[in-house]
Write a protein that binds this DNA or RNA. Structure first.
Length: 480
RNA sequence: CGGGGCGUAGCGCAGUCUGGUAGCGCACAGCGUUUGGGACGCUGGGGCCGUGGGUUCGAAUCCCUCCGCCCCGACCA
């Protein structure tokens, strides 16, 4: 039964998403600042868990964190022509300090390639300085016509990695390593969100990049969400910012750079991948609260007995489980069940007088809402049982999302089939068209090529649009 | 940025057409009874009716301005 105040997915998917964000207490509109949101504590806690996991992976793969200025001289942004053209309309510009007008205005970073490029040109001298592997956790700002909490806001939080390499091969190795070992691994293992790893087409790539790679996920309305990008920037920024080094032969060479990022958009991706009409559904590995305990008692005598049992049961949880004991008075147990379901807590334990008699507890799993996911289990071995259940839920969420994506992905051999397929999901198609063809298809069908999957069967076929022979399969979808 | 809708208590709304000084449900506070799937009774607090201007004896209500939010497009992590 859908919770009060949550629009069902079937009725209005957009509104459902907004309801979840609001009702689960993840974010609030910063109504006095256009296009921005407030990350409320529960939403920010999810981001902190994501950050921790990503930061570990980024460091394990050899990168160090640093921090560069929020303000970028406007002239820097102008230095790389494709980059300027890509970002110009979205820039916030700082023109004054107090009443004084600035000679040389700043922009608030929409991304930091340019200012980091400026410093890298000073830092890189020799091939021995390379590769230079730096990451930054930061906020960035891009003006957006239409905003949605987490998915698209004027200000968002992210990490951006910026690396410098001696040659194209090394830059490419970095770009792909991040895609696979950091982003795809994080998405699938921590978020329980299956992703397609792919290459962006020329039309869809990052402004200023040589090649852009991405992970794309399917949301429950069948639309695609770009969840992370990794760019081989070639020598474009190195040339614009004069990042050069002396090689083994004492010859001056232009360096190769990469950049890669994931943002708080991942929170939106996670919501839209797993949640249901009852509210938020969080994968256990990213749930700020993994287990909630609801004590049940009618009188003082029962209360002290139940609370003593709860204390004994949870004694060994600290450090093993993220848990909360909901001992709020004057709220009925039923109310609490609904509230924690709304907030997506993966596992709920109920302890009442009957459990004390029988040596049991009631154990409910959020991925099976309502009474369906509830069972009575012995108190004996509860901690291990819960740990195993969290692993099981994590896997079940991934499996369910993968099955959903597979069921909503189909090969299409004609334009008509494509137009139909992208109404509900992903269309796989042979493609040999141009950027102009792609643009025309977007105008006509609202679908774009999300990516050219890296995993290609390599079987010859015919492009559905141009009729040319090709073995290249791409994914078309409507995108967020 | 275009088209549409909406701004009245923390939330959801009525009242606006036809001007007369603001109401309902939930939430909140106090007390009492309750507590195994969204408890109940009584009492109570809370509103510059989005902003600024205009019309009027009088404006939530009529007119203009600006701002914000939502939906559908075009632009983008």
């Amino acid at each position: 039964m859908p919770k009060d105040g949550i629009t069902t997915r079937e009725h209005d998917y957009s509104q459902w998403y907004l309801d979840i964000v609001q009702q689960a207490g993840l974010a609030d509109y910063a109504e006095v600042v256009k296009g921005c949101i407030v990350f409320k504590p529960f939403g920010y806690a999810i981001w902190e868990l994501m950050q921790r996991q990503l930061d570990d992976r980024i460091k394990e793969t050899g990168h160090e964190n640093a921090y560069f200025p929020l303000l970028i001289p406007k002239s820097f942004i102008m230095k790389e022509s494709e980059h300027v053209a890509g970002f110009a309309p979205e820039l916030f510009e700082v023109t004054h300090i107090g009443n004084e007008k600035l000679e040389d205005p700043y922009v608030i970073r929409p991304t930091s390639e340019t200012i980091i490029g400026h410093f890298y040109s000073k830092w890189v001298r020799s091939y021995r300085d390379l590769p230079l592997l730096i990451n930054q956790w930061a906020n960035v700002m891009r003006a957006e016509m239409r905003t949605r909490p987490f998915l698209r806001t004027a200000e968002f939080l992210w990490q951006e990695g910026h690396t410098v390499h001696v040659d194209e091969a090394d830059a490419e190795r970095e770009t792909l390593m991040i895609l696979h070992e950091v982003y795809a691994d994080f998405a699938e293992r921590e978020m329980a969100m299956p992703v397609i790893r792919g290459l962006k087409t020329e039309k869809e790539k990052f402004p200023g990049a040589l090649r852009s790679y991405c992970i794309e996920a399917m949301m429950q309305d069948g639309r695609a969400l770009q969840s992370g990008t990794s760019h081989n920037l070639g020598q474009n920024f190195a040339k614009a910012f004069d990042i050069t080094f002396t090689d083994q032969n004492n010859t001056v060479q232009t360096a190769w750079t990469t950049s890669w990022g994931v943002s708080t958009r991942l929170i939106g991706a996670m919501i839209m991948t797993h949640s249901d009409d009852e509210g938020l559904v969080l994968p256990p590995r990213l749930a700020p609260i993994q287990v909630v305990v609801v004590p049940i008692h009618k009188n003082e005598g029962e209360k002290s007995a139940v609370m003593a049992a709860v204390g004994a049961l949870t004694a060994q949880w600290k450090g093993r489980l993220r848990f909360k004991i909901d001992s709020r008075e004057n709220l009925s147990p039923g109310f609490k069940y609904n509230e924690w379901e709304l907030k997506g807590v993966p596992v709920r334990v109920e302890v009442g007088p009957k459990d004390l008699e029988k040596g049991t507890v009631a154990l409910a799993r959020r991925d099976m809402p309502g009474k369906a996911g509830k069972s009575f289990v012995p108190q004996e071995g509860l901690t291990e049982r819960i740990e195993a259940l969290l692993v099981e839920i994590q896997q079940a969420l991934f499996d369910r999302a993968l099955q959903f994506r597979e069921a909503r992905t189909a090969f299409v051999g004609s334009y008509d089939e494509l137009k139909l397929q992208i109404e509900t999901g992903f269309a796989r198609a042979y493609w040999a068209g141009t950027s102009e063809d792609e643009k025309r298809i977007q105008d006509e069908s609202r679908a774009t090529i999300r990516c050219i999957p890296l995993d290609q069967p390599g079987v010859a076929g015919i492009c559905f649009y141009t009729g040319k022979p090709t073995s290249q399969l791409v994914i078309f979808a409507r995108a967020y």
